[in-house]
Simulated scan of single mutants.
Amino acid sequence: MVKIGKIELPDFPLLLAPMEDVSDPPFRAVCKANGADLMYTEFISSEGLIRDAAKSRQKLDIFDYERPIGIQIFGSEIEAMRESAAISAAVGPDLIDINYGCPVKNVACKGAGAALLRDIPKMVAMTSAIVKAVEPFGLPVTVKTRLGWDDSTKNVEEVAERLQDIGCQALTVHGRTRVQMYKGEADWTLIRKIKENPRIKIPIFGNGDIDTPQKAVEYKEQYGVDGIMIGRASIGYPWIFREIKHFQQTGELLAPPTIQERIDMCKMHFDRSLEWKGLKLGIFEMRRHYANYFRGLPNVKSYRMRLVQTEDPAEIYAILDEIANTLEYAEVES
C-alpha cells in the first residue's frame, strides 16, 4: 500500500496526469472507469481563482466517484498561491498538488510552473505557505516537477529533500528538464536516485514516456518508483490503466479494446461532456478526442470528419453506431 497523508492507494498506483484542456471531469470519468487510482484536475491558475474567474472556478468541480482526486494549482506569487490553496481546499478534494513542472512559455516565463526550479528558496517558501494554508482542512500537499531547468541545473534531488522537510507528502517527477519540453527521451535515472536516498520517506512517482504495459513494469523494476503517472498515453486510450494492471498481475498482455468498446467509451465521454459543459461546448470540445479514440482504425477519416462537423447530438450517436457496425471486425493498426 502507498500512503499520501490519510489517502491509501494500492501497491504501485497508476496516476492520471493533470493535463490542460484534457483532464476535465468527462475525461477523468473514462480513466477512472478503466483503473486510474489517483487523478488530478487540470492545473488551475492561482490568479484566476483569486479573481473568481469563471473558467478557473469551473475547474474546481470534482465528484465523489472520482476519489481520490487532487486539485492542482500553479502561480508565481506566494500569497496568491496560499490564498488559492485555501479556496481549492474548501471544495473538498483529497489533496492539493502544486505545479512546479509546466514548461510552456506563457506559464514558465511568467515565473510559474517550471520557472520555480530556478529559485529553490522561493519554491520552498511557497510550498511551506501552502502546507500551512491547507492544514486546517487536513489535506496533504503534493508536488509535480521536473529534473531541473536545463541540463546544467538538474536540481531535483535537492528539491525532493527540501520539499519533504517542509511538509510535502508525495513528489511526482517528470524525467525531462524545462528546456527539453516534451522532446527526446525521458531520463528516469535521477528519479531512481531520489528513491534510493535514505532520507526520502515520501512516495516518489515517475512520469514521462510510459505508453505500454511492458514499459510500466520495466520502469517499476528498473527505477524503484512507488507508482507512475500517465499523461499523453491515456488520451483517447484510457484502457492503458487496465492493461498495465493486468500485465503487472499476470505477465500477459490484454487484448486491445474492441471496436464496440471504443465506441462505448467514446459515448460515455461524450455523455459526460454534455452533462458538464452543456450542449454547445460539450459537442465542440469533444471534437479533439475523436481522432484519438479511433486511431489505427481503417477507413475512419470520413466518419471523423462528419463527427467534427455536426452539432446534433443524435447525429453524433448515429455516426458512432455506424462506425461500430461498419468496422466491427476491422483490425486496429499498431
Score class of each variant (00 low, 15 high):
residue 120 I to A: 07
residue 291 A to D: 02
residue 176 R to A: 06
residue 225 V to P: 00
residue 239 W to E: 02
residue 154 K to D: 04
residue 54 A to E: 15
residue 130 I to C: 14
residue 32 K to G: 03
residue 153 T to D: 09
residue 188 W to I: 03
residue 138 G to N: 14
residue 50 I to H: 08
residue 234 S to D: 02
residue 77 E to A: 12
residue 34 N to V: 00
residue 134 V to E: 09
residue 291 A to I: 13
residue 64 D to T: 11
residue 129 A to N: 14
residue 114 A to C: 06
residue 283 I to G: 11
residue 126 M to T: 14
residue 62 I to A: 11
residue 78 I to D: 05
residue 115 A to P: 01
residue 93 P to G: 04
residue 286 M to A: 10
residue 299 N to G: 07
residue 283 I to W: 08
residue 221 E to W: 01
residue 333 E to Y: 14
residue 8 E to H: 12
residue 327 L to F: 01
residue 293 Y to F: 14
residue 248 Q to N: 13
residue 329 Y to W: 06
residue 207 N to Y: 02
residue 75 G to N: 09
residue 280 K to D: 15
residue 47 E to N: 04
residue 22 V to A: 03
residue 290 Y to A: 06
residue 38 L to S: 04
residue 130 I to G: 10
residue 287 R to E: 08
residue 187 D to G: 00
residue 196 E to Q: 15
residue 63 F to E: 09
residue 214 Q to H: 12
residue 94 D to I: 07
residue 317 Y to N: 13
residue 299 N to Q: 13
residue 142 T to V: 13
residue 3 K to A: 12
residue 39 M to Q: 15
residue 202 I to V: 12
residue 217 V to F: 05
residue 244 I to W: 08
residue 25 P to Q: 08
residue 202 I to Y: 02
residue 90 A to T: 05
residue 108 A to Y: 01
residue 43 F to I: 02
residue 228 I to G: 00
residue 79 E to R: 15
residue 257 P to Q: 02
residue 273 S to N: 13
residue 327 L to M: 04
residue 246 H to E: 13
residue 54 A to G: 01
